[in-house]
Design a protein around this nucleic acid. Sequence first.
DNA 1: ACTAACTTGAGAATTAATCTCACTTTTCCC
DNA 2: GGGAAAAGTGAGATTAATTCTCAAGTTAGT
Lengths: 161, 161
Amino acid sequence: MDSIKPEDRRKSSETFKEFLAQKGLRVTNQRTAIFDAVFNQEDHFTAEDLLDFSREIDRSVSRATVYRTLPILTEGGLVKEIDVGRDYKFYLANRGQKTEQAQVICLDCEKIFEIEAPFMEWYARSVAQKVGLEPVSQRLQVHARCIRLKEGGSCPNRESH
Amino acid sequence: MDSIKPEDRRKSSETFKEFLAQKGLRVTNQRTAIFDAVFNQEDHFTAEDLLDFSREIDRSVSRATVYRTLPILTEGGLVKEIDVGRDYKFYLANRGQKTEQAQVICLDCEKIFEIEAPFMEWYARSVAQKVGLEPVSQRLQVHARCIRLKEGGSCPNRESH
DNA sequence: ACTAACTTGAGAATTAATCTCACTTTTCCC
DNA sequence: GGGAAAAGTGAGATTAATTCTCAAGTTAGT
């Protein structure tokens, strides 16, 4: 089920065209397909996932173009890149969330949760100041176990894998 | 200059033998060389660095053995593995520091600082609780810029690269 | 010393990501 | 609209850290 309203998607698509124009980049079918595929996803996805999703929209999209487009999107702030230490990266459509988010990674179901982490910037600043540095960005990752599983229950997301 | 006292190194080496024995693993020249190489390093190092350092002690150490030994050391808590999102990992001899440390990565000199981050475990717990999870480990990484460089000075560690 | 089990080195394999280059497509100026 | 320069693309080769394979070498009890 897709919870993004059609009008939102159209609006985002306009934003994308403006975004490309402003960067002096051309609007191509492939880039549009990739962009649409990104904003169809509610959850985290890998580059390979995105290739599949994009190809459902435009069969001609190649792996190379996905890998070329992702940095454009992340540098433009439209996509968030998440590295949880596996040998591939995750990505997430940026729908204007707070910047103060932590990744909580469930070791039972492998799911990644984006959770609000209030004062994280302030906290990072207080740490960086100890060595005379000024934060540009920060990330907090928490590897965790499901409490319900521990209590003899089952991890609610376990079946998704 | 090496600031580790000889008696400390010997003691650590004993610890290593006990550690291997306890895990049912054999004491080999290669493992000992790698272990010694690890505890010769004050700073972060890569697997490739460690291969070089180990070979200075025992010429026969191979890349495969370094890569095989590192997980033994990290799982045993003797070495800390640090992934700052590059395509290779860093490692650091664990000399019994606090677990509450953040990595502050200077974008000007590339140096990684291990900085005390008080209450990080408590903070991670409060974040993970929001989705019914219990932290197993957490890591905070702060990408930052040198304040002195910004003020027209130079990053004090710049020359190390 | 003997031997079964464990380790090792060298190089092949893996795999996410990047690069190359000949071929398309877009843009924009007329 | 038409045409050319510049930008973008697909397919497949390449890269590089890490992992795997397997024959040969070591270790640790007996």
